[in-house]
Design a binder for these strands. Structure first.
Lengths: 149, 149
DNA sequence: CGCAGTTTAGTTGTGCACAACTAAACTGCG
DNA sequence: CGCAGTTTAGTTGTGCACAACTAAACTGCG
């Protein structure tokens, strides 16, 4: 009869707090470039897919697990900052392709050192970080499967 | 020369996504009681400290890593829902003690099964969850130490 | 004892996150 | 071919999170 309703026992609380602590480390680094963490994630996807067709809003949403209610205003801010362009697809007017501007492309090199800075802040080894990442990824997909039923 | 600016390599993205997926599991469960996840966390702290003096707003903030800008409106909503009472300390008028109402206390029993439901949704064993929780807690405190310097 | 400095809770403004909804564009079945 | 149903991006409203700030209360040093 142990009591599970105790804060320090809760994995979820550890997850929620660790996630916010991580974003706290990003905040001052990204603020120098006028970015928030979710905006940085959008740029990561765009940098990664540079040789392919530019993704649509829903394509970005699928990668980042975010819906248009979050992405639409975020993308407007990235566009206002001159980092991306949103363009209605001529073939299908419902779709909006999101492309990098030269300024958006140029940011990639300037942010290349960010992952190293973050890894250092966690105090974990590269191996530990890989294990952690894979455990978290496993949880996330288990939860998504759980929701199917 | 591997490229760290790739989404699936990022521990931080795994953390951010897992945290939101967890809250997604909580949402429908807590919604039956009119609660959000951060409100539930406040109640966990209050249930845990029932025999002690009721915590102040800043005391809650220290436990949950949240500031008054987040807690003040959240506590007003919990008070409006009849689950807590906020009371200025007579000894020090700056402090506001947060106490459970009988309705707030009664909720504890009705939510006793929530941690088990959550653990099941993750698809991890109890042992894996303990390891994960401890890794996350270690990261969070490493980050906090990192910020001191 | 008085007041400079600190502590405390709360407010204001910005940016997610997400539920619920809307409008426009598209698809494919009868 | 037409239209019911679907897909897509965007809007509206609520609730965090947090930076920057405010006002009131308190503390302790000179």
């Amino acid at each position: 009869m142990t009591d599970d309703l105790v804060l320090r026992r809760q994995v979820c609380f550890a997850l929620y707090t660790a996630s916010r602590a991580m974003v706290d480390v990003y905040r001052p680094i990204l603020a120098e470039f006028g970015l928030t963490y979710p905006q940085y994630l959008v740029l990561l996807v765009l940098w990664e897919g540079e040789q392919e067709q530019p993704p649509t809003v829903s394509g970005l949403g699928a990668r980042l697990q975010l819906d248009s209610g979050t992405l639409s205003p975020l993308l407007k801010r990235l566009e206002a900052a001159g980092l991306v362009i949103r363009r209605r697809s001529p073939a299908d007017e419902r779709r909006v392709a999101v492309e990098l501007t030269p300024a958006g492309r140029a940011l990639r090199g300037r942010l290349a050192d960010v992952p190293r800075q973050l890894a250092q802040a966690t105090g974990l080894s590269a191996d530990d970080l890989v294990v952690l990442r894979d455990t978290l990824t496993r949880i996330t997909s288990a939860i998504h499967q759980h929701k199917e039923q």
